[in-house]
């Protein structure tokens, strides 16, 4: 009798099921109406099937976002798992759209689906890429802005994985501060 190796036919399960969302800025519609769920996946193979099927971030028009969130968490501040949370934010220069954007976003996705933040991966809610004329943005959202150890670890690992130089400082801001800011910048709760 032939012995079948399970590696040959079982897809590789991820720790979490993930949902990929797409936002397209149509000013005639509400913010929520512009947000669409593309698909969900929970295996390595299905992640790539989806990733290989969709446009690279750098091909999207200005005003669009991709968001990858754990199943059950909506990519908005109001969600129960986000409302006391915040985000690590990286703003890219215009030149970086061609040089870094797609590489940074894929690396971010691999950090999430691969659970690269060890025990602190539980604090991760998702990640967002915003395509904007004035400078694209990448963010990792976490669930609680008071969890300093988790946030710091996530920020350090993310920065290292993207290959961001040590001298470049990235900041973490609470969604509450971002929502109530008066100027164009939000104060950082943490930096790495």
């Amino acid at each position: 009798q032939e012995v079948v190796n399970p590696e040959d036919y079982i897809k590789h399960p991820l720790q979490n099921r993930w949902a990929l969302w797409f936002f397209k800025n149509d000013k005639t519609k509400t913010w929520q109406a512009n947000l669409r769920l593309i698909s969900k996946f929970d295996t390595v193979e299905d992640f790539w099937a989806l990733y290989n099927h969709i446009q690279l971030s750098s091909n999207l028009i200005s005003g669009c976002d991709y968001s990858l969130f754990k199943d059950g968490i909506e990519p908005m501040w109001e969600d129960e798992r986000n409302k006391r949370g915040g985000r690590w934010l990286i703003t890219l220069s215009k030149q970086q759209r061609r040089a870094d954007l797609d590489r940074f976003w894929l690396e971010t996705l691999l950090c999430l689906v691969g659970e690269a933040f060890d025990d602190h991966s539980d604090d991760v809610c998702g990640a967002v890429v915003n395509i904007r004329t004035k400078g694209d943005k990448l963010a990792i959202w976490t669930t609680d802005y008071e969890n300093k150890d988790a946030i710091t670890h996530i920020g350090q690992v993310w920065k290292e994985r993207l290959g961001v130089p040590h001298k470049v400082i990235i900041g973490y801001q609470s969604h509450a501060d971002t929502a109530t800011k008066s100027g164009s910048t939000t104060k950082n709760k943490f930096v790495v």
């Binding site: 399960p13 691969g114 991966s121």
Partner: peptide, 20 residues
């Protein structure tokens, strides 16, 4: 334990799905 996957392991699967 957590199902953790290293980046190179994940990258190894990128074009495998299309071949099967």
């Amino acid at each position: 334990g957590k199902r953790q996957y290293k980046r190179d392991f994940l990258l190894g699967f990128q074009f495998m799905a299309a071949c099967t």
